[in-house]
């Protein structure tokens, strides 16, 4: 693999649910003070819940497992945002942002739509509502949205369009099981998505309704950095950025990641950097014609899940490729 410096317009891809893994970012927290500072700022904004979240995050045997939405959602938001801030504080100016699910809230905060305090309130409120959501699950199917659609039982919906042939479905346990059985009989391959909450299904409607008043009360500004919406697959307009309903609907609206990524990639050659745990989004981005032809390149700041003690080293290697000093 080439080790030369990467140049060109910089797109940040910010991951969401399914990127989480036990210990993610904890090595950076110990070894990179600038990262720890931003994380502590966010934990402080979360109040007592932030202390509990941090101690569970740093624990080798957490009381609540990382795949639980109470842990994965706020931590993914925080780590995505802290990594983005780290790059920007070192002088990098992203030209465009795209977040997957909760990653879009981190992107919106980097873009200045919400301030960190406001974004943390949204995340906390959302997480607080998950207990009211009926049990459900999610699965990734190796098929297009159109191929999957006819097999969906009532109560199961398209959760995300991740790639031309990777569609995530979400719903209540029983109809999800029968839907997956039908898909298997029809010859489709699928794998479970690690989530305790059936994100982007109608089961989260109460969360949307409950978030209305909070979102209406929070100031929202037009983005300072262009943001491609994972929900419209177009550039987020100033009106959308200020519309409380746009943000409130995220938990029920399907994530159109591949269409959004296609919009982003269509702007011309650029460097697509995964700004969060793991390398799931850059792996998808490698399927883009622009990346396969070598016109655009990809880089994951942290790379595949690794032992925490190697994270600072991986981030330093990524920083070198971006031409900035190691954080």
């Amino acid at each position: 693999m080439a080790v030369g410096r990467l140049t060109g317009p910089l797109a940040l891809l910010m991951p969401g649910q399914s990127a989480q893994y036990q210990g993610m970012g904890t090595g950076l927290y110990r070894d990179v003070p600038a990262f720890a500072r931003v994380m502590d700022e966010l934990f402080l904004l979360m109040g007592a819940a932030g202390d509990e979240l941090r101690s569970d995050w740093l624990a080798t045997s957490p009381r609540v497992p990382i795949d639980h939405a109470d842990r994965s959602q706020p931590l993914l938001f925080a780590i995505d945002y802290a990594l983005g801030r780290l790059l920007m504080d070192r002088g990098l100016r992203p030209t465009v942002l795209l977040g997957h699910s909760i990653g879009e809230l981190a992107a919106a905060t980097l873009a200045g739509i919400f301030d960190p305090a406001g974004a943390v309130r949204i995340v906390r409120h959302r997480v607080g509502q998950f207990a009211t959501v009926p049990a459900g699950g999610m699965a990734a199917v190796a098929a297009s949205r159109a191929q999957v659609q006819p097999y969906l039982r009532p109560g199961v919906e398209i959760g995300a369009v991740n790639a031309p042939r990777q569609t995530v479905i979400a719903g209540a346990v029983e109809p999800l099981r029968t839907t997956l059985d039908a898909l298997r009989h029809a010859g489709y391959t699928w794998a479970p998505v690690l989530s305790t909450v059936p994100f982007h299904s109608e089961l989260l409607r109460p969360v949307v309704v409950a978030a209305g008043p909070l979102l209406a009360s929070l100031p929202a500004r037009p983005p300072q950095i262009p943001l491609v919406s994972g929900y419209t697959a177009g550039y987020l307009t100033d009106a959308e950025a200020r519309d409380p309903g746009y943000w409130a609907r995220h938990p029920v609206d399907p994530v159109l990641f591949w269409p959004a990524l296609t919009t982003l990639a269509g702007a011309g050659p650029q460097l697509l950097v995964e700004c969060g745990p793991g390398n799931g989004l850059t792996r998808i981005a490698r399927r883009l014609p622009q990346v396969r032809s070598g016109h655009s390149e990809v880089l994951a700041l942290l790379g595949p899940p690794t032992h925490p003690y190697r994270e600072a080293e991986q981030l330093a290697a990524a920083a070198a490729r971006l031409g900035i000093s190691p954080p």
Partner: peptide
């Protein structure tokens, strides 16, 4: 993977890891 165009990257780099080629566990 649902690619709409084909390349011959496997023959050019037969030992490039699937991960680098953008294929995940589902694919």
């Amino acid at each position: 993977a649902g690619d709409d165009e084909s390349t011959d990257s496997f023959q050019q780099a037969p030992e490039r890891p699937f991960a680098d080629l953008g294929y995940d566990s589902l694919a």
